[in-house]
Amino acid sequence: MNWYDIENERIISRFYTFKKSKHDNSSEVNYLLFYHKNERIEIAIDELDITDSQLNQYLKIFRTRFNDEKSRLQQL
């Protein structure tokens, strides 16, 4: 998998509720969502040892690096 094939990467949250529970329990699960060759891929990120903002920063850094290199290669 390379950056050429990845599009629209972002972090999303989903809230799940348990209707059969005696308490109104709900849980939030965070996912990294992106499209790879037009296939939607979601990866649960709650178990990663990283905050959502750190992951967002890494995605921005690597997307910027990829776009810079891609435009540099197109100029050659």
Rank of each mutant, 00 (worst) to 15 (best):
E39H: 13
K37W: 11
I61T: 07
I50N: 02
S21K: 07
E9G: 11
F15R: 09
Q54M: 11
E28R: 10
H23A: 02
I61K: 02
V29Q: 14
L59T: 01
E28A: 06
E39Q: 11
D49H: 07
I6S: 01
D68I: 00
E7C: 00
V29E: 09
K22A: 14
K70L: 01
R65E: 14
N30L: 07
R40G: 07
N67V: 05
L55V: 08
V29P: 05
K60P: 00
I11C: 03
Y35V: 03
L55P: 00
W3Y: 00
I6Y: 01
T51Y: 13
E9I: 01
N2V: 01
S53R: 07
W3Q: 00
D52M: 11
T64H: 03
I50C: 04
N38T: 15
N30R: 10
E69G: 11
D46K: 13
F66A: 06
K22G: 15
H23N: 07
L33E: 06
S27N: 06
R65T: 05
I12V: 15
S26L: 06
V29T: 04
Y35I: 08
A44Q: 11
N30T: 02
M1D: 08
W3C: 04
D52T: 06
I6F: 02
E9K: 04
D5Y: 12
R63M: 04
F34W: 06
E47K: 07
L48V: 12
L59I: 02
L55D: 04
D52W: 07
R10F: 13
K22S: 14
Q57H: 05
L48D: 13
I43A: 04
L32V: 10
R72V: 06
R72E: 15
H23Q: 03
Y35K: 07
N2P: 00
R10K: 13
R10N: 11
S71H: 03
V29L: 14
N8P: 09
E39L: 11
E69F: 05
Q75A: 12
R14C: 10
E42F: 03
L59M: 03
S53C: 07
E9D: 13
K60A: 14
S27C: 11
H36A: 12
R14H: 06
D24Y: 10
Q75N: 07
I6T: 06
I43S: 08
Y4L: 10
I11D: 01
Y35M: 00
D68T: 00
K19D: 15
Y16P: 00
K37G: 13
Y31E: 02
K20Y: 13
T64G: 05
Y31W: 05
E69S: 08
N25Y: 14
E69K: 06
N8C: 11
R10Q: 15
E47V: 13
